[in-house]
Design a protein around this nucleic acid. Structure first.
Lengths: 246, 246
DNA sequence: CTTATACATATCATCCTACAACTGCGTCGG
DNA sequence: CCGACGCAGTTGTAGGATGATATGTATAAG
C-alpha cells in the first residue's frame, strides 16, 4: 500500500516530509512508546520513496530523541521521558494564535531576565548593551540594521544573566519574532514609531545601570507589550500588562 | 565456539561522528556563518566515508538549524540568529552548574505559569491537577510512581495556561530534572520529605482553585526552591527566593 | 531431556553507482 | 548589447550490494 505524503505548495524535501509524518504519528499516540517501527524496507514502500530517504528521516527523529535504532533489531519509539533533547520547530509558529503565545512566553522570560540582569550585570555587559542601543538609535528608520541591533540588545541582556539556558531560549524566541516583524512591515508603516521604541529601550538600560531589578522588569514588560502591539499582536489580557513590579 | 567479541564501548555511528565534527567546527567559529561547506563528495573523501553518511550528517545539522542546503548550489553555515529551531542536549546538563541554571529557568517559567493558570484554569484543568495531586499523595514513598504524578501535576498546570509553548518548555525542563532526581536519590535519603513535598503542592493547588495568581506564583516559587534544595541544587541567591508576589 | 553450538534469518549500517533536478555561468547567435 | 541556450557542478533521489549485529531455530553432544 502506497501512502501519499502531503505535498503542499512548497517543495519540502522528502526526508523532512517522512520525518514529519512519523513524528505526527508518534506525537498523536498512534505509535506508542516501545513499539517497533516498520522496517526501512516497509517504510520506503509505504511512502514510495527510497530507503535512503527513510534513513535520513529516521536519522532526524533519532537526533530529536524520538526513536532509538538498534542494529539488527529495528527502530523503537521512545517515551517522552527518555528523550535527551528538545526541539521546537519554527514552522509551527505560523499557525494562528501562536504569535500571541510566543510573545507571552517572551514577556515572561525577558521580564525575569531583565530583573536578573539588573542584579548580575558587570561593566562588560553594560558596555555591550549600550553599544547595541547606540547602533539602534543611530538608525533613522526601523529596518534591517536597527532591528538587528534591537535583537542584539535583548540577547545581550539575556547574556548578562549568566544563564546560558535563558540566553538560548530568548535568542530563539527573538529570532522567531524577527520574522513576524519582517512580515508585519509589509502591511503596516512602522517607521514613525522609532522614537517610541528607542525610548523604551533606554528606560530598560537605565534600570540596568542603576541595578534596579524591579524597574528593569517593569520597563521590559512595558516594552514587550508595546512591541507586540506595534507588530499587530494583541497580548491576551493578563498579568503581562501588570508592569507594577513585585 | 569462538566467542564473539562483545562490542563494548560501541563506536558511535558514523553520521553522528561526522555531524559532531562539523558541529564543532561551526561552533568554534572555524566555519563562519555564510561560508559554504565542502561538497558532499569532498567531505566523503575527507572523512573516508560514503556520501550517504555525509548526507545523514548534514541532514542532522540541517534539522538543528545549523546549516542550510540549497540544491544545485551547496550547503551554507547559518548564523545562530537565523536558526529555525532550538535544541537542548540533555548531555550538556551534566556540566557543573548547568543544573542550577536549569532550575533557575524552571523557576521563572513555572512561577509565571502558575500565575497564568490561576487566571485561566477551567474546571477540567483543576480536575486534572487534582487527580495528579491525589496520585502523588497516595504514595507512601517518593519514588517512580509519585514522581510521575509530581511531574504530571506541573505539566497540567502548564497546560492550564492555554499556551502550548509554555507547556512544551516546562515539559522538557521537568524531564531533565527527573533525571537529576533519579541520580540524587542514590546518595540522599529523600523519603521522609514526602509530606513536605505534598504540602507544597497542595498550597499551589489551593491557590489555583481560589484563582489567586499572586498566591499561586508565590507557592510555586517556594516549592521549586524547596525542590531544588531537596535534590541538592542550590539556587543562586537571587530574586528567585523573593516569593513575596508582586 | 538439557545444553550448547552452529546455522539461517531479519534488520540496520554502510557503500556504491546512476540519474534527476536545480543553479550559476559562460558561450553563442541575433 | 543582450537574451537564449547549453554545460558543468551540486544537491536530491533511487535502488542494489555488502557488512555488522541481534534473534530465533535446528542440530548434536552430554
Amino acid at each position: 500500500m502506497k501512502q501519499r505524503l502531503a505535498a503542499i505548495g512548497t517543495v519540502e524535501a522528502l526526508p523532512h516530509r517522512v520525518a514529519a509524518f512519523l513524528s505526527r504519528e508518534i506525537e498523536s499516540g498512534e505509535l506508542n512508546p516501545g513499539t517497533r517501527l516498520p522496517t526501512e524496507q516497509q517504510l520506503s514502500e509505504k511512502f514510495g520513496v527510497s530507503r535512503n530517504v527513510v534513513r535520513e528521516a529516521i536519522a532526524q527523529l533519532r537526533a530529536d530523541g524520538m526513536i532509538e535504532a538498534r542494529q539488527g533489531v529495528g527502530a523503537f519509539v521512545l517515551a517522552p521521558e527518555q528523550r535527551a533533547s528538545i526541539r521546537i520547530d519554527g514552522e509551527a509558529l505560523k499557525a494562528t494564535g501562536n504569535m500571541e503565545r510566543l510573545f507571552e512566553l517572551r514577556c515572561i522570560l525577558e521580564a525575569e531576565s531583565a530583573a536578573l540582569a539588573a542584579e548580575r550585570r558587570r561593566q562588560e555587559h553594560l558596555d555591550a548593551i549600550k553599544a547595541a542601543l547606540d547602533r539602534m538609535s543611530g538608525e533613522e528608520r526601523w529596518e534591517e540594521g536597527s532591528i538587528d541591533a534591537d535583537l542584539l540588545f535583548h540577547r545581550e541582556i539575556a547574556r548578562a544573566t549568566g544563564n546560558n539556558y535563558i540566553h538560548t531560549f530568548i535568542s530563539f524566541v527573538c529570532e522567531q519574532i524577527r520574522r513576524s516583524i519582517h512580515y508585519a512591515r509589509l502591511t503596516n508603516p512602522l517607521h514613525d514609531l522609532v522614537e517610541v521604541n528607542v525610548g523604551e529601550h533606554v528606560r530598560i538600560y537605565e534600570a540596568l545601570v542603576a541595578g534596579d531589578p524591579t524597574a528593569a522588569e517593569a520597563a521590559m514588560r512595558a516594552h514587550i507589550v508595546g512591541a507586540a502591539d506595534r507588530v499587530g499582536v494583541k497580548l491576551p489580557a493578563s498579568r503581562a500588562a501588570h508592569s507594577t513590579g513585585r
